[in-house]
């Protein structure tokens, strides 16, 4: 459990940076860091406080062959080209809403997801329906991701311009996985389908959109900041 109490959170972050957490606690912090902004901030402050201590380790020349090994690893991780997601034709993105409207919605992902789920999933369905609302770093709802059969569907809730010269890339991180899977580039239209087979949607799966260079991440891993993030959960009422 990542504590919400600021003192306990600070103590956990401090020992994470110091290195005294055991393997289980350290793994828990590593999993929480991408999604927990308060933890990330607290850890960053402790990294800055203790950073000078790294200077106490005497420098030492690494083994000769190490660079070649690193180069080979970085090269094999260079991924297959990133495919654009299939835009859903004939459906324009919903018109932008005034900011004020969304501020009242920024009550946290669970409440928003539950509310939208109740509206959206009144129809019966075969596979268990899952959904999430991807939130901005300031907890503003931005995208709806829902399962569609064995695939996924992405819809913009709050269209906003992409930084010029950059693209948005969609990723999924199944629970327990160490690296996210690229689902593709988010199309301009704001609505897209992710065909079944790339990932198997499951509760707890993290879905995120990162800002990437044209053509998508050159490394196969997210390289840019996380713009939007959410966690798949069973849709309420199913």
């Amino acid at each position: 459990m990542i504590p919400s109490d600021p003192e306990a959170l600070d103590a956990l972050a401090a020992e994470h940076v110091l290195g005294t957490l055991d393997a289980r606690q350290a793994a828990e912090v590593a999993r929480a860091l991408p999604v927990d902004a308060a933890l990330r901030e607290t850890v960053a402050r402790w990294e800055a406080r203790l950073a000078p201590l790294a200077g106490l380790a005497p420098p030492e020349t690494p083994p000769d062959g190490l660079w070649d090994r690193i180069e080979a690893s970085v090269a094999t991780r260079a991924p297959a080209p990133v495919v654009p997601l299939r835009a859903i034709p004939g459906r324009a993105a919903p018109p932008p809403r005034p900011d004020r409207f969304w501020k009242t919605w920024a009550a946290g992902s669970t409440a928003v997801a539950a509310g939208l789920a109740a509206v959206l999933f009144l129809r019966p369905a075969d596979p268990p329906r899952m959904m999430t609302v991807l939130l901005t770093s300031r907890d503003q709802p931005a995208w709806l991701v829902e399962t569609e059969g064995a695939g996924l569907r992405l819809a913009s809730l709050n269209p906003r311009p992409v930084e010029p010269g950059r693209v948005q890339q969609l990723w999924a991180l199944p629970p327990g996985a160490t690296a996210p899977t690229s689902l593709g580039l988010v199309p301009e239209g704001g609505q897209a389908r992710i065909a079944p087979g790339l990932v198997r949607p499951e509760p707890g799966m993290l879905i995120e959109i990162t800002l990437e260079p044209p053509g998508g991440s050159p490394t196969g891993r997210p390289t840019g900041p996380i713009l939007f993030i959410g966690r798949l959960a069973p849709a309420a009422g199913t």
Binding site: P62, P63, L66, R69, I70, S73, V74, R77, T219, R221, P222, T223, G224, P225
Partner: peptide, 17 residues
């Protein structure tokens, strides 16, 4: 060397962050 290898591969992937 293993640790530095893993770290540099991470650094390459996270440089934009």
């Amino acid at each position: 060397a293993d640790a530095l290898h893993d770290a540099v591969v991470k650094i390459a992937a996270r440089a934009r962050q």
